[in-house]
Design a protein around this nucleic acid. Structure first.
Lengths: 365, 365
DNA sequence: ATTGGTTGCTTAAACATTTAAGCAATTTGT
DNA sequence: ACAAATTGCTTAAATGTTTAAGCAACCAAT
């Protein structure tokens, strides 16, 4: 313990913290600042600092607990060791989980993350991208809405490591990690068809986000193969949750023949559950139900909800690997790495058609 | 324009981005760097730069879109306009939501947030605190586990703005924002008692986190007032989710007389639901159920789960206000601001005792 | 006609580091 | 014995800002 036992006169506590600089180290060891710096940056060998001196430096540095000022370092080297991560909404379970995983993996490899939520707002996203640049992040992991193609392209062409994930930006050629939502939704839809559901709806967002369009295409493909028509509700994301629930409610009420419904995102699924509750329709007796993305809610719901689960660990791992490869790889190899991961259909009760008295078509209570 | 009109040989794209510096502005306007800097920092009046020149500077700066290098600025001024936010786990719904709210409010006031998850690991928390210091964050918003008192105290005494939230650190006098979990849990327990539940258990973590202890005390107080014994399961947080579920399962199996259970955190509640599922016990027929923290899971569960909800908006607002007051307030006012917010008991079906065989004790509906 | 006060800007140090270039002293080669 | 190469370190420029201190030029007042 360094604290004096007797407090003594009112010391200015901030003086106790007197930041120690590389200059202090150098002076104490009676060597130049450059020597200390070289040793600390592992260039002792390369720059022919003697082992003896290098060791003296390291020893003293450890002893006094000297830590270089990262701001000065970054200013000089142009590297911050910070990665900018931009997601739709950090309060969303999917993105929160991805962020947590990426943070952990990045930290383990010496990088810090700074996050931002775009809320799918183009202007805000632009501002945030500008902030990342101002803060001199070394690399970008982006799940951004369409509308910022120009800015992202400029980054890529400026040589900055950029990895798009969750969704692509049309016409922007960049490293990317995405999940094959088309196949995921295709199989989910086929599963519903196989279960005997015959009028299957999709609830998605009115948005040009590529992952949503892919999921839609998967749904559409399965239906077309069976000669069935699409039945799609596109809700707007710029509204209150309550409004979304009501939209879904109205949609389902307007389509009473519909006997199963797919949701393109986790929160649409959650709102869907609420809508069905209000309508008093039971899952799966009145309505088959599948959502994209897994969560505690879906897993523990009664009945448990069938989902198209994304491989979270793999996504995070791929994003960080791709980014670090670009960051640490010697110069731009000119190649673009696009990774596509397979989602997994987790079949639970909500999509299992109950064997009941005859075809339970439109069964009222 | 300095660019030749004829493009010439294959230009290096990165050269196109030639970062513009304050020096370039100064030279173009034929004034000194200092003048430009003063104007940009709103000190034109104070330092007697003529309005005419100030306007010329601003005009040209806007025209070429010059943005000062934040690293250099921070190095010189010692301010980064970054707040370090440390939570238990960013993937946890409560913290994710708080983080999202704090981020939004901070951004609106010109500050950036960098987050970290402690996972309640003391060593990791210490490392992360050190990182925040290295990155020169201007202020700290901390929900940290016990064990880092010394480090946090050092920060506070070093004059750094620190706001503890969600939980306090014993013996660290700092600004804080907490929720009155004692009263919250006291009322939740009283509610169960009023409903006629008679053997009420609490599932909490084996931890000295102050908010958990307060919740426990609230539970204990209500029981003691009714002359009833405590029945508490403390699960360890260092284990896999699956193990926690099994712990709860075993605990409930070992206490068959127990007819209601309270959970001290949202994820304990979620695990509790799973445990009850596995045991085949129905809520509220076999077991009354209340969890701390609200979530979609609890709200949409069947039956809907009664919760002690925390006022998220208020927490975020208070944290950021307290922090910015300390950051921008003129010097240390010497006073510590501790805010305590009231939680809200949201009564849902899971804690409503079904009228069944036997007297429903203490006034029915 | 000198002093004193403004006005309107500039000079230069400071922030804390990295790293290319340089320079004695020593070792090696012929 | 002398040139060349190597060793082991240092000097100083560079990174891009902010801001205290300074300095001409002009004006007002004695």
């Amino acid at each position: 313990m360094k604290e004096p036992l007797v407090p003594g006169p009112p010391q200015n506590r901030s003086e106790l913290k007197k930041k120690i600089l590389i200059h202090d180290i150098a002076r104490h060891l009676d060597v130049s600042i450059a020597t200390v710096s070289l040793v600390l940056n592992g260039k002792a060998k390369e720059k022919r600092i003697s082992d003896a001196l290098a060791e003296r430096v390291l020893k003293y540095v450890a002893e006094v607990g000297y830590k270089p000022n990262q701001l000065a370092k970054s200013l000089r080297t142009g590297k911050t060791h910070v990665i900018g991560l931009m997601v739709e909404d950090i309060a969303n379970a999917f993105f929160a989980k991805i962020a947590a995983l990426i943070e952990k993996k990045a930290l383990a490899r010496g990088y810090r993350i700074i996050y931002c939520s775009t809320n799918n707002d183009v202007a805000q996203t632009r501002d945030l991208l500008a902030m990342f640049q101002e803060r001199h992040v070394d690399g970008y992991a982006l799940a951004v809405p369409p509308g910022v193609e120009a800015e992202v392209r400029a980054l890529v062409q400026g040589g900055k490591p950029v990895v798009l994930f969750d969704r692509l930006l049309p016409d922007v050629l960049a490293d990317a990690v995405v999940v094959d939502g088309l196949t995921g939704m295709y199989e989910a839809t086929r599963h519903l068809l196989a279960q005997g559901f015959s009028s299957i709806a999709l609830v998605t967002l009115h948005s040009a986000q590529t992952q949503l369009l892919a999921r839609w295409r998967g749904y559409g493909r399965a239906l077309h193969e069976h000669g069935l028509p699409e039945l799609v509700e596109e809700v707007s994301f710029q509204q209150e949750p309550e409004q979304i629930v009501q939209d879904i409610e109205n949609f389902l009420r307007a389509n009473p023949q519909c006997d199963a419904v797919l949701f393109a995102t986790n929160y649409l699924g959650a709102h869907g559950l609420e809508a069905l509750n209000r309508l008093g329709r039971r899952i799966p007796e009145h309505m088959g139900f599948i959502s994209f993305d897994d969560s505690d809610l879906f897993r523990l719901y009664y009945p448990p909800i069938t989902v198209v689960a994304q491989p979270m660990e793999l996504i995070a791992e791929s994003v960080i690997n791709t980014l670090l490869a670009a960051l640490e790889g010697s110069g731009p190899p000119g190649r673009v790495t696009q990774t596509q991961l397979a989602p997994q259909l987790l079949v639970r009760q909500s999509s299992i058609r109950p064997v009941g008295p005859g075809p339970p078509r439109e069964g009222g209570p």
